[in-house]
Design a binder for these strands. Structure first.
Ligand SMILES: [Mn+2]
Ligand SMILES: [Mn+2]
Ligand SMILES: [Mn+2]
Ligand SMILES: [Mn+2]
Lengths: 224, 224
DNA sequence: GGTATAATTTAGACTAGTCTAAAAATTTGT
DNA sequence: ACAAATTTTTAGACTAGTCTAAATTATACC
């Protein structure tokens, strides 16, 4: 009970959580973590030993790591805080969706359960952050997003834009510049076999093209 | 330009700023800082050398320290953030005034000028925090509070309660329990020479007594 | 003015978190 | 199956921030 978890340790746990879901594998490797956090592999190994010591991860040398239940809960809580603060920044302070990630990276480490509970209520208990990512609830339960990237639905029809799988500032700004935001309806008029580009209409406006790169980075659901 | 100032360094600068104003002396001693931050004097000496190296303080061994202009600006900015976040916590999240200090101690280190500017606007550019302390403006200018503790006005009459000079949780809770909040009118009906206690009415309610300890910890202005 | 006391600094050590270089283990390819 | 390539760990070093104990400087008092 009540082991203190440092900011650095929180970031490692979050990285392990994210990577294990990114690659659909339960074991995460040392190099994956070192790439993700821009640290050297030797540094990661040191930290993995400390996290294992604290019972936050299962670690077998050379075999990779996975989170313990305690580690998972800690990671989820950091993600909950990150996403709630992003909602605050966009909804209450009128930041753009491409401006909030760096600030949320700092705010996610503020330690106060009461604060998060009240912030959640103040924001109207949102279910999704400004990028369409689901916000874990107070018990650590997370809606799994069943949406797929647009390019995996190789069919004409109407889709709803529900999130991004690429979070870079430049990509988010690009979506803004083509006038696409969460909740918009995308009508696929043609799928171009040659380069896998998509001819689409956004909310019944004029037609435009999505490159395969764009189509593979936006998550959509079939419109009901 | 653009020297990175760590969270720890920010706390030292804030401590030096606070202590120099608390004792009305420009030079702050090593022991004062070590008491204030609950660090050992040797630790403080180490840090003072680092802060001097970064041109944030003027430091002459054995003589005490004072802030440079750059150090003062940094300290003021941290105080501005602390007090703005306290306003946010009380006004927007409905925290009580005795619950916000610890959380603001964390939030004051979040580093984003844009965030503070937008938070300030969102809160309606408040001039005072929930404890009546003035909030420095974006240029680092601070209204000096000219209010005195009630016990220094040894006279009957009407006063306005504008702030506290004691910030402990128990004291703030005590004021709440006797029904006193910022802005209330305090009518002094008697000053008791024997123990320097005060017979007062708050907002024309029933009379009660303030001990000298209470009277010396609340800041009031003569009611206009 | 000289000594006792208090304040401050120095010296040396420790932890968390990082690095580079080298060693060891694992995986890959023939 | 074994050598080469890759991954991971170990060893040793560094910085920031902290400590204790000892040395030094300042101050207070007679
Ligand atoms: Mn983010
Ligand atoms: Mn997000
Ligand atoms: Mn405070
Ligand atoms: Mn305050």
């Amino acid at each position: 009970m009540c082991v203190i978890i440092s900011l650095t340790e929180e970031n490692y746990l979050k990285a392990i959580y994210t990577l294990s879901h990114l690659f659909e594998e339960s074991e995460v490797s040392t190099n994956q973590i070192s790439d993700h956090l821009n640290n050297k592999a030797a540094t990661v190994t040191d930290m993995l030993k400390r996290l294992a010591e604290k019972k936050l991860i299962h670690y077998i040398p050379y075999q990779g790591v996975k989170l313990t239940e305690k580690g998972r809960q800690t990671a989820i809580k950091v993600i909950r805080k990150h996403r709630l603060w992003e909602v605050f920044l966009v909804d209450k302070l009128q930041f753009k969706w491409d401006e909030v990630h760096e600030i949320a990276e700092q705010l996610e480490h503020i330690n106060s359960d009461e604060l998060i509970q009240r912030l959640d209520k103040f924001l109207g208990k949102p279910k999704f952050d400004p990028h369409g990512d689901p916000i874990p609830d107070a018990n650590g339960l997370l809606n799994i997003v069943k949406a797929l990237p647009l390019n995996q639905h190789k069919a004409k029809g109407n889709f709803t834009f529900v999130g991004v799988c690429e979070h870079s500032k430049t990509f988010l700004q690009h979506l803004t510049s083509i006038g696409l935001k969460i909740g918009d309806v995308i009508k696929v008029e043609e799928v171009n076999e040659f380069d896998n580009s998509f001819k689409v209409k956004i909310n019944k406006n004029n037609s435009q093209f999505f490159s395969n790169k764009v189509a593979s980075s936006i998550l959509v659901e079939v419109k009901k």
